[in-house]
Amino acid sequence: MKRSDTAHTDAIDCDAGAIVTKGITKRYGSFTALENVDMIVPRGTIFGLLGPNGAGKTTMIKVLTALIPADAGSACVSGHDVRREPKLVRADIGWVAAEVILDDDLSAMENLWLQAKLQNLSDWKNRALDLLRYFELYDRRNSRVSQFSTGMRKKLEIALALLHQPRVIFMDEPTIGLDPGTRRMLWQLITGINREYGVTILLTSHYIEEADALCSNLAIIDHGRIVATGTPSELKSRVKADIVEIALNYEPDMPTFAHMDGVQEAARTENGMRLKVASSESVLPRILSCLNIDGVLKINVDKPSLETVFIDLTGKRLSDDEGRMDMRKFYATLRMTRR
C-alpha cells in the first residue's frame, strides 16, 4: 500500500502521528464548526476528543475520514493525506458509531462478510471467526443481528471495525445510551483491542469518567477550537483548584465573593455562581456565611478532575442537558434501526 510521505499539503508531517492535522477549518454557511485545528494523535494510543454537543467532534471525524472536505488546512490519517488519498485512508481505518449501525436483516457472519467485500479482503474468514470468539459472539454467528442485545450489537460493530486490521479506529461516542454495566464491558474491550491489536483509537465522548478511564491523551474541543491537549494528569495539574457551583434563587453580590480570601475566580452562572477556590474545605464556611441560606438551591463541589479542567477551560459542564437530549436521539435511532 502506497504511503503519502512525499505528497503532503501545507508542509504537514504525516509521520508525526497516527493522525495529524494542521489548520483544519470547516464552515457550514456562516457557522464555523472547526477553526484552525492542529492535532497530533500518537500511534498506538487511545486519544480522547472531549467536548459538548456541537463542539465539532463529529465534524472532525467526518473530515478525518474523508466524508466531507475541510475548507482549509491539511490532515493525515495513518500516513495518508486525507484530501489526496481518501481511499487509502478508508482502507486503513475502522469506525464505531454512537447509534450501532449494522444490517439487521443479515446475520453476524453476513455483516462481517459484507465488510470483507467492501474492504476487498480475500482471506477474511479466519479473522472474522477469531474476532467473533474474542467478542464472545461465535455461538451466535449465524443469528440475525435483529435478535442481538445492544451490548452484542456494539461488540459486533467493533468486530467489523477490526476485521480489515486497520491502524486507526474512530469511535464516535461509542458508549452513549448504554447502561453502566455494558459501558464498563465496552471500556474493557476498547483497552483490550488497543493493547492486543496495537490499533490507535480516536474516541469522542461526552463522559469525563470515560475519557479518564480510557484515554492516554486528550484534546478538549469547544466551539470548533481545541482549547487544551495533554495527558489526563497533565490537564488535571493545570487546574490546582476546586470548583464550587452554587444554585440560588436570588441575585448574589458577586464582588463580595470575588474579593473573598481563597477565591481565585468568581463568575455568575445562569442560576447562581461558580467559584474557583484554592481549597473548598477552608473557603466553603466563609462562602456559606455570606449567603442567604434560604435562597440556596444546590451546592456542588468538584475536586481537581477532568470535569474541573473542562469547566475551567469552557465555563460549562460537559455532562449537561445536551447529553440527555442526545440520549433521546440515540434511543429513537435505535428503535428505527430495529424496526
Binding site: T65, R90, A91
Partner: peptide
C-alpha cells in the same frame, strides 16, 4: 442514509 448504513459503506474504499 437515514439509518446511517450509507456512512458505513462510504467509510470503506467503495
Amino acid at each position: 442514509k437515514r439509518f446511517g448504513y450509507m456512512k458505513r459503506i462510504l467509510l470503506t474504499p467503495t
